[in-house]
């Protein structure tokens, strides 16, 4: 929900902890689980997503009065997909190793619920500056979450961190953690830890990434109340 009364800086900071897109709002689970076998990949994915989020948020909020309401979802999709194509080219040209390790998940940024959710919930209702700050904050929050997740999995699963060997664990890593199963397990534990630290009651359900991620959210008002 847009809160215009608040100072702009809170748009930036809310995404990092209070409304952290992955750990609190539980959006964008697919890339969170898929690319975090290494801390570096998590960081790269986070930054690539931040770039797309920033670009799409700025363009969408700049065009929010031009785009007719009825075709706004296809319009958002095209804008987001264009930025994804752009970041694909940039990474392929400048950081080919990251491009290779992210693989298909780079394309799948297009359908990341975080980006669509921010476009729908924030950028289409707020001005350019607030939307850009919101995107940066959400992007940083997402990147931090991915980096933590990648670090845990890399340290335990491979005995390395950012390519450096960790003594003791390196000779005897728990391979399970860099396998898909370890991704689910690590994320579950991190969310539990965040709940414990923030003393928040854990969300009982994920309704397809929540209303934020659902393109039909405006048509179903029923979920809106019990989410908040």
């Amino acid at each position: 929900m847009p809160e215009n009364k608040k100072p702009l800086i809170s748009e930036l900071t809310k995404g990092i902890i209070k409304e952290n897109p992955t750990l609190v709002m539980l959006l964008g689970m697919c890339p969170t689980l898929a690319v975090t076998t290494q801390a570096m990949n998590g960081l790269g994915m986070g930054l690539a997503t931040t770039f797309v989020l920033l670009g799409s948020n700025i363009v969408i909020s700049a065009l929010r009065k031009v785009i007719p309401d009825k075709v706004r979802i296809p319009a958002f999709i095209v804008i987001i997909a264009s930025f994804v194509t752009l970041i694909g080219f940039l990474l392929e040209g400048f950081v080919p190793s990251l491009y290779d390790s992210l693989g298909i998940y780079l394309t799948l940024i297009t359908v990341n619920c975080i980006i669509f959710g921010r476009a729908e919930m924030f950028a289409s209702k707020n001005n350019v500056v607030a939307s850009a700050l919101d995107a940066i904050g959400m992007g940083i929050g997402f990147t931090i979450a991915l980096f933590i997740m990648g670090s845990i999995r890399e340290i335990i699963g491979a005995g390395q961190w950012l390519g450096m060997d960790i003594p003791v664990i390196h000779s005897n890593p728990m391979l399970l953690f860099i396998m898909p199963a370890g991704g689910f397990f690590t994320l579950g534990c991190i969310i539990a830890a965040v709940n414990k630290l923030t003393n928040k009651k854990p969300p009982l359900e994920i309704e397809c990434g929540g209303c934020e991620g659902c393109p039909m959210a405006d048509k179903c008002s029923s979920k809106e109340e019990d989410k908040k």
């Binding site: 199963a181 370890g182 689910f184 397990f185 579950g188 969310i191 709940n195 854990p202 009982l204 359900e205």
Partner: peptide, 21 residues
């Protein structure tokens, strides 16, 4: 208590994933 809801679901998914391995 802390694992109720989503965390428990994710841990269960991890075990199902192990079986698919």
């Amino acid at each position: 208590e802390t694992f109720k809801g989503v965390p428990a679901t994710l841990v269960a998914a991890s075990i199902v994933s192990v079986s698919f391995m």
